[in-house]
Amino acid sequence: MFNRFVIANPDRCLGCYTCMAACVVNHQKQGFQAYPRLFVTYSPAGTMPVQCHHCEDAPCALVCPVKAIEIKDQMVKLNEGLCIGCKMCALACPFGAITIQGAPPPSVQAEPTSLLSSLLAWLAGHKTIGIKCDLCDFDEEGPQCVRVCPTKALQLVEGGDVERWSKLKRAGAVTGAVAIFKGAEG
């Protein structure tokens, strides 16, 4: 099995924020926190949205004290209902792809008993929890950021893709090596 993740091509990204707004809307509709799970990030080297890479040995899942983050269905899932807002995952994430945000999601209000005691909540009825990309796995259309991007800068990378790219790169490496040796002969 391979993990899956969404990645952007900075040569195409316009930094237009359409992906972020689509992310907010799709999750809000589902009763999740209405915050973006990817972040358009400017840098002189290029611009692209940054989001969870769904690491195979995910540090966020390792540090989560309440097992709110687990690795299943070829991805890293965060259960917003279980999260206690301790921020450890956000600190551990090597991509800065997890944020801690604060309004109570409707799903939590509906099932208060599913919550472990939240020692870090600082205001009654208003707790902060970890927010991260879930590849819109509740939506049969797949990740909405990929769907709405006007330049198709974003794509969902799945196991087969990486293998295909590697094959292409190996083919390129052979061509390069051949050229070097031919050059040496000539």
């Binding site: 316009l14 237009c16 924020y17 359409t18 972020m20 707004a21 689509a22 709405v148 991007c149 006007p150």
Partner: peptide, 9 residues
């Protein structure tokens, strides 16, 4: 067949 943030939202 494409739109930006203002067109969609």
């Amino acid at each position: 067949g494409e739109l930006c943030i203002k067109g969609y939202f």
